[in-house]
Amino acid sequence: MRELKIQTIKNGSVIDHITAGNAVKVLHILGIPKTSSSTISVAMNVKSKFGKKDIVKVENRELDPQEVDKIALIAPKATINIIRDFEVAEKHKVKLPKEIIGIVRCSNPTCVSNFNEPVESRFIVIREDPPRIKCYFCEREPEDIAERII
């Protein structure tokens, strides 16, 4: 088992290989720390053999891989490591779900999803890596997904 480059935790989750600079956005997408009272550590611009990366460590909480999949939008190469008693018990590579709901704002200012309607933003995933998504309502493809995170 490969040693993680940040301080080990006893139990919890480590999100590794996040595109450098995107760790805070990843936390935002996951709703952390709002949804969690766990201790959270963030390491940014960590050197690795593939260049720089960010790492997020959430103690005493096992993140549901499917819940974390949506971070593939901005960190398509990220992995989720579930840590139990200092060991990597499970490892999962993020995979974009077919639809992204309520996370990205449509880049089209005249899209109906940007008006006062009782709907969440909704995108269909066209390609996973690099991610390409299309608005379910107006079919516009945002080019700068990271900038459109709600």
Binding site: C106, N108, T110, C111, V112, S113, F115, E117, V119, C135, Y136, F137, C138, E139, R140
Partner: peptide, 12 residues
């Protein structure tokens, strides 16, 4: 409707 995607929303 003047807003893009309005018909898709209507269908929902």
């Amino acid at each position: 409707h003047p807003q893009e995607g309005a018909a898709r929303l209507a269908a929902e």
